[in-house]
Computed example of a mutant assay.
Amino acid sequence: MPRGRGSSARPLLSNHQKSWLWGTLCVEETLRAGQWPIYELLLATESDQPIHRQIVEHAERLEIPIDRQPARRLEQLCKARDHQGVLALMGPFPYTSLARFEQQLTPQSRIVVLDRLQDPFNFGAIVRSAAAFGMTGIVIGAENQVQVNSHVARSSVGLVNRIPIVRVESLGESLRTLQQAGCRFIAARQDGEFRLGELFAETDFAEHPLAMILGSEAHGVSAELDRLCNGSVRIDMAEGVESLNAAVTAGILMYSLSPLTNLRSES
């Protein structure tokens, strides 16, 4: 993790205004992980709760500069009132490379692929569920896809630090690379051929790394990625309900695929 204030040319998460991360749990989790560069920490003058003292201890251990400012100044910097008395100035997010991720795959690996997801709060909620349900990692594209930013990190409660997130230039090419490594793909669709719990009755899915592809909120899974899939899965719902929020859909499907649960087909 970079130490000190450094030069004005240091790379930031985004522009200066959008490179602040705030909230006690999110910042504490990020400091504890020690992977995402933090250049500077700002604490509100009156912030002296146990969580603030833990944050200061982490920052001092990592030799990150700490400054005290009035709470109003923190609000001006992050353009939010819910900063909880702490701001961190962030460098670029440390995405995992596809090559490194591929080396870690096993037949039990469970992967989430996001195809052009636009809402940062959906993305953050998906990251949180992926970490909770033991997913191996998340793969996203570099274009037409929200990247890891402060809103994503806050929505995940800092859990972007606990699960590998792979960013690739081309999802199609990258999935073909994973396919050659033995990975199987399943698309989340309203008319999917498999119900929850049925996938592991299929030997082809049970004996290979499995990636679930979730499409954009507006357009679903792209035709290019759909052609790479070995099947599709659906969530049965009450009559008259057409769809679920992307993050809710992802959470239900991840639970069904999770190595931490026993949700399997009875057949």
Rank of each mutant, 00 (worst) to 15 (best):
S155R: 01
A201K: 15
V157I: 15
C183S: 14
E202C: 06
R184W: 01
R110N: 05
R176T: 12
Q147N: 14
H208T: 00
A187I: 12
L199A: 07
N149Q: 12
F185C: 06
A130I: 03
S170Y: 03
T177E: 07
Q104S: 14
R162P: 00
E169H: 11
S155F: 05
F185S: 07
D204M: 08
F200E: 02
A206C: 03
A181Q: 06
T177I: 09
I165C: 04
G158N: 12
N161W: 04
L196V: 02
A130M: 02
M135V: 05
G141Q: 09
E169K: 12
L159A: 08
Q180G: 13
N149E: 05
N122C: 08
P120C: 03
L105G: 05
E202D: 08
R128E: 02
R195G: 11
F185Y: 13
Q108F: 05
L114D: 11
D119Q: 13
I126R: 06
S174G: 02
C183V: 13
E207C: 10
I111R: 01
P164N: 14
H208M: 03
A188H: 02
Q118K: 13
I186V: 15
H208C: 00
R176Q: 14
R167E: 15
L196G: 01
E143L: 15
V148R: 01
R154G: 03
A201Y: 11
M135H: 06
P120A: 03
G141L: 08
R189L: 15
T203W: 09
Q108K: 10
M135K: 00
G192P: 03
G158V: 13
A188Y: 02
A153F: 12
A201V: 09
E193N: 11
V127H: 01
V139L: 13
E193G: 05
C183P: 03
E202H: 14
V168K: 05
I111Y: 03
D204L: 10
N122D: 10
E202K: 07
G197P: 06
Q179Y: 08
R154E: 02
F185H: 03
I163C: 02
A132H: 07
V146I: 14
Q180Y: 13
H151R: 12
A125H: 00
V166T: 01
Q103W: 03
Q103A: 13
V168I: 04
D115T: 04
H151E: 15
V112R: 00
A206H: 05
A130P: 00
R128T: 06
R154T: 12
A130V: 04
P120Y: 06
P209V: 03
E169S: 13
P120N: 06
T203E: 15
M135F: 14
F123T: 09
E169T: 14
R128A: 06
N149W: 11
L210A: 05
F121T: 14
S174M: 01
Q108S: 12
R154L: 11
H151K: 10
H151M: 15
I186G: 09
C183D: 01
D119T: 07
V146D: 04
N161C: 15
V113N: 02
R176S: 01
E193M: 10
A201P: 00
P107M: 04
F185D: 03
L117V: 13
V148A: 07
Q190C: 06
V168C: 11
F121N: 12
V139K: 06
A153T: 12
I138N: 00
E193R: 14
G134V: 08
T136K: 07
G134P: 09
R128P: 02
I163P: 01
V127W: 09
